[in-house]
Write a protein that binds this DNA or RNA. Structure first.
Lengths: 204, 204
DNA sequence: GTGTTAGGGAACGCGAACGTCTCCTACGCT
DNA sequence: AGCGTAGGAGACGTTCGCGTTCCCTAACAC
């Protein structure tokens, strides 16, 4: 009858932020593994080694949970904007490459989430607004700001500070990664910057 | 007790192709209304006013059904390629606008389907292959062919016959329509052609 | 007309998640 | 050390869609 219990010092029962982190991870993993259509709260709970109640206590619906996990991992305007706006030295081209890298990273890790969002946003205006505000806007704004600074330094044509040009980079990257599920290497990302974006916006 | 039955000549019970058309329509409508996650065979059957058995008899799985409906409505390489390759007179720019219009049309009507495909294709290699072969490839090939002809007529730089350039147009259109669920007007489509695609590929 | 085929409609048992609730215990605070 | 809160585990009844099967009849072929 003697169950030899090791002295595991790690907390067996998480709370608050630690628990929420674990749940967010589980959501991400679950989405990647089974997809949004087959996504269930029960599986997330099991994967996070928690009870369903702990999830329902925090998020009333599947959408809320997924959206929150998404924001927690990729959200916040500061991360991207801040990084790029801090650096006032690097040429526009390099900033674009860094932005592209970041977009690739997010699109890779959060591919299933983004697809799920796109699917649900059609029918859920609140979700659409949240994604618009927390994800799309900041990214777009960062890009436009980046173009504006390029103009100041004479690297970018003034006419190029427009939505169409700001959308080109994310559009081409997500077209491949999100819609066609093709990986994009760093070289290809750079190719898009050098062959598509820069020629469109550069002076001369 | 006299039920006055009008002499309705229209068949009350459809068969074969007529029935399949109705089911395809129902699939499209159902996807648009409730989305792929909440999509059920029962609802499709009810909407098409048919029995579940008639659907199961034809398509073993949800994916097969949706894919088939998609192909039936938007598939076939001939429609796009044929249309564009027939016309050997119009300038490249106009052909691009026509292609853009077509892409907009498909992306608008089939938005939910395309999103659903993107979601499922990650986990279903067969589906991915089918979409790749029946949708992506022909579109891409048509675009490259179009570029090639442009070169022959001196409208397009020879170096522009590359994948990156062929992807720019569909990428920018679907980025807006499929991922961000924003409508794209004919004027905007033309803007993309004139401000993005043409400058990239045109001679000089 | 007669026979064959296939559509419509619905009932069926089954399994999976739902969302709620309860019990008990680990945690963290004082 | 003791207390209150919150986490884990899972049972519960319910709902829902699955995929199958049945019967009956409309549609078509001959």
């Amino acid at each position: 009858m003697t169950v030899i219990s090791e002295a595991s010092v790690a907390p067996q029962r998480r709370r608050g932020a630690a628990l929420e982190d674990a749940i967010h991870c589980a959501v991400l993993a679950e989405l990647a593994e089974v997809g949004y259509a087959a996504f269930t709260i029960e599986s997330v709970a099991a994967r996070a080694k928690t009870g369903k109640a702990s999830i329902y206590r925090r998020w009333p619906t599947k959408q809320d949970l997924v959206l929150d996990a998404f924001i927690a991992r990729f959200g916040g305007p500061d991360e991207i904007v801040g990084e790029l706006l801090t650096d006032t030295e690097a040429p526009t081209r390099d900033l674009l490459v860094r932005l592209a890298t970041r977009i690739c990273q997010v699109s890779d890790e959060g591919a299933e989430m983004i697809r799920a969002m796109a699917c649900e946003a059609t029918r859920d205006p609140e979700l659409a607004a949240a994604v618009e505000q927390k994800v799309y806007r900041p990214k777009h704004a960062a890009f436009v700001e980046l173009l504006r600074r390029g103009v100041e330094r004479g690297e970018v044509r003034p006419e190029a500070v427009r939505g169409v040009y700001a959308e080109a980079l994310p559009a081409m990257l997500t077209y491949r990664m999100i819609l066609n599920n093709q990986p994009v290497t760093a070289a290809e990302a750079a190719e898009i910057v050098d062959c598509v974006v820069m020629p469109l916006i550069a002076t001369n």
